[in-house]
């Protein structure tokens, strides 16, 4: 049976890329993408629906499109992008509405993939070197993004418990890095000198953005239910991350770091929220063996992911952004999808 997939957060980095990858899969019949903003990548057959941030019309969409698979990528993990209130609205309320729609009577949903982050493990001195999927944070989670992802995971667990016929997979991604994604860490690594905390050189773990997409497709295609860490092999000291990028680190005061960083934040140069400052102090490792045992193969180790990132940065610095800029034009997209003038089912031109 061919799949009908709903992708949340189509306008976000992940949603767009997941939809692109799904379009290439002949076993996927229909892709419906939701977001508050328009897609930023070119899509051929994905149907884009504009919704409000917390998905109040979702149950109608689910019923109307009869989707059997939901890929929930619309989760904010970068707190520098919005206020914590907006983040709460998207992460917690959005997920709540999504699962309410998915578990409504007569729902056709049979598998759900949620993209969470290893942020839910927190970051504290009491932590083990490697977090496995059963472990929880050593301390009470303190930052808004960690707490909101934790709440999201609570809804995921409840949904999985209430709907045993649905295959629910929860993927926790380590720090994502790669050719395109922008996160607080990539911004820090693009600075002329990389900020660090004086006297601390914790070990970081990265996962390449391609491996993120591949992992989402992998759990979809194999119907893997359960919680999985998705993280590249190996832990790198922060100084080594910087030196792979060909940079030096500049130590910041480990006490009152927030006050020290305030002017830099105001200048828009360094924006490292609390959970990243904790990471610069203690680091975090997530054990990726469960997904590997399920048969997943990582293309990049942590170090290789950083290497791929810095190579892309160098290319961008040399030639600018060489990829064509895409802008979503509703009329054009509608024409190609629905106009009788367009000849579909052509043999693919190679």
């Amino acid at each position: 049976m061919k799949r009908r997939v709903l992708v949340t957060g189509l306008g976000s980095f992940w949603g767009g890329r997941v939809a692109q990858a799904l379009e290439a899969d002949p076993n996927v019949e229909t892709i419906v993408g939701l977001d508050t903003t328009e897609p930023t990548v070119e899509l051929e057959r994905t149907e884009y629906v504009r919704v409000d941030a917390n998905y109040s019309i979702l149950s109608r969409i689910v019923k109307a499109t009869q989707v059997d698979t939901i890929v929930h990528t619309f989760l904010v993990v970068d707190p520098t992008q919005m206020s914590s209130r907006a983040m709460h609205e998207i992460n917690v309320i959005g997920t709540m509405n999504l699962f309410a729609a998915a578990s409504a009577a007569g729902s056709t949903v049979r598998s759900v993939v949620v993209k969470s982050a290893t942020l839910v493990y927190g970051c504290a001195p009491e932590d083990p070197t490697w977090f496995t999927e059963e472990m929880t944070s050593s301390r009470r989670l303190s930052s808004p993004v960690e707490r909101s992802l934790d709440a999201v995971e609570g809804y995921v667990r409840d949904f999985a418990e209430d709907n045993p016929h649905v295959s629910v997979s929860l993927l926790r991604f380590a720090n994502v890095i790669g050719q395109e994604i922008v996160t607080p860490l990539t911004r820090a690594l693009e600075l002329p000198v990389v900020p660090s905390l004086f006297g601390f050189d914790p070990r970081f773990q990265f996962v390449h953005e391609d491996d993120v997409i591949r992992a989402i497709l992998f759990v979809l295609n194999n119907n893997l239910a359960g919680v999985y860490n998705v993280a590249g092999d190996g832990l790198l000291p922060w100084t080594e991350v910087a030196s792979i990028c060909g940079k030096r680190t500049i130590p910041m005061s480990p006490i009152a770091t927030g006050a020290f960083l305030w002017p830099w934040k105001r200048l828009g140069l360094i924006d490292l929220p609390d959970e990243y400052l904790a990471l610069l102090r203690y680091g975090r490792g997530a054990d990726n063996s469960r997904l590997k045992h399920a048969g997943f193969h990582y293309e990049y180790t942590s170090a290789q992911a950083v290497q791929a990132f810095i190579e892309a940065v160098r290319l961008r610095q040399a030639v600018g952004d060489h990829r064509p800029i895409y802008r979503y034009e509703n009329d054009v997209e509608q024409f190609f999808r629905h106009s009788p003038a367009v000849v579909r089912d052509q043999a693919p031109a190679t």
């Binding site: 490697w130 000291p237 180790t301 170090a303």
Partner: peptide, 9 residues
């Protein structure tokens, strides 16, 4: 592999 130091996990 592109490791630059020998710091283990």
């Amino acid at each position: 592999e592109v490791r630059l130091s020998d710091v283990d996990e």
